[in-house]
């Protein structure tokens, strides 16, 4: 850049001004005080598009300190482009340490997954949320859904589940599966697969949810009861996979399907790339894994 170019526009350290961070922290605290309740906040315009993680980025920017270690995942992976981009953003504006190792991170920002490695006390999981309102597709009006939450009128939510069973013989919701928090608020866990729902229940980590475009923040303090909605005779159940990860042989983890060729050849591998790499480093081998480890990149 030329000298003339640099003084036309400058950005604050860590992008958000302190006033804004305090406002967002207040919203987070309110969210923690009322688990599962959607707190409106004055979401800022962020330098990435709405719908691309602006809510999560604002939450992370408001809580991150110089000693934090940040991990960013998208679809479970550290190396998807949007995760790379958000991680690079924080490296640039806040100069924080980053990692791909779940256990080493103090803050993990995620889109669509909860890491396989169990989270521990002191860690914060920040979810990027596109549509925070679990009732939105049943009732499009904000004014009405707010009332439904206030009066705990959640019958409609079960109508949707009833319809699934009547039509498909099972509850056909596979992701963004609604949960009830501490027996009070019905909450959207963001579009994580329902496979991850049980990980939210009584997690020792603090879970924060940021929806930038919809201007809502909500939270699950550590050890909060999170129960997936269901019927007594059609209990909630998670997806199971017929085979282990083709690279690290892990079972009971969420798998991505990868297409190998033009003839329908495919394989299933861990969606959580850090978990998969760690297992392979420990010597686990799936049936399609190379015999020797590739050199670390």
């Amino acid at each position: 850049m030329t000298a003339q170019a640099t003084d036309i526009a400058t950005y604050n350290f860590a992008y958000l001004d302190e006033q804004t961070k305090r406002m967002i922290r207040r919203a987070i605290l309110k969210g923690i005080a009322i688990p599962g309740y959607q707190v409106p906040f004055a979401s800022r315009e962020m330098p990435m598009p709405y719908g691309w993680g602006t809510g999560g980025v604002q939450v992370t920017a408001s809580i991150i300190g110089p000693d934090d270690v940040l991990k960013v995942i998208d679809q479970g992976a550290d190396d998807t482009t949007n995760a790379v981009s958000i991680r690079a953003f924080f490296k640039k504006v806040a100069n924080v340490a980053v990692t791909t190792e779940t256990a080493k991170a103090t803050i993990i920002q995620t889109r669509h997954r909860i890491p396989e490695y169990p989270l521990t006390t002191g860690q914060v999981l920040v979810y990027q949320v596109p549509i925070p309102e679990p009732l939105r597709f049943l009732e499009p009006r904000e004014t009405e859904t707010r009332k439904m939450h206030a009066l705990e009128e959640y019958g409609l939510m079960h109508v949707k589940l009833y319809e699934d069973i009547a039509r498909h013989g099972r509850i056909a919701t596979t992701y963004a599966y609604p949960v009830k928090v501490e027996g009070r608020y019905v909450m959207d866990p963001s579009p994580t697969p329902k496979f991850d729902n049980p990980k939210m229940h009584r997690s020792p980590a603090l879970q924060l949810f940021g929806a930038g475009r919809e201007k809502r923040i909500y939270a699950l303090p550590p050890f909060t009861d999170v129960v997936s909605l269901d019927f007594e005779d059609h209990p909630f159940e998670v997806q199971t996979f017929d085979q282990p990860c083709a690279l690290c042989a892990a079972e009971n983890v969420y798998l991505d399907e990868v297409i190998l060729d033009d003839h329908g050849g495919h394989m299933f591998v861990c969606s959580d790339t850090d978990h998969c790499e760690k297992r392979r480093a420990e010597g686990h081998r799936g049936h399609l894994a190379p015999e020797t480890m590739e050199p670390a990149q």
């Binding site: 079960h158 109508v159 009833y162 009547a166 269901d230 019927f231 007594e232 005779d233």
Partner: peptide
Amino acid sequence: RMTVSAGANVGERLMAVGDRHYGKIR
């Protein structure tokens, strides 16, 4: 609710007051 099945239309009030057994509601 015009876009919800007849069964769910009848069952909605039951679910609203806390019935959680699909078979009994049906």
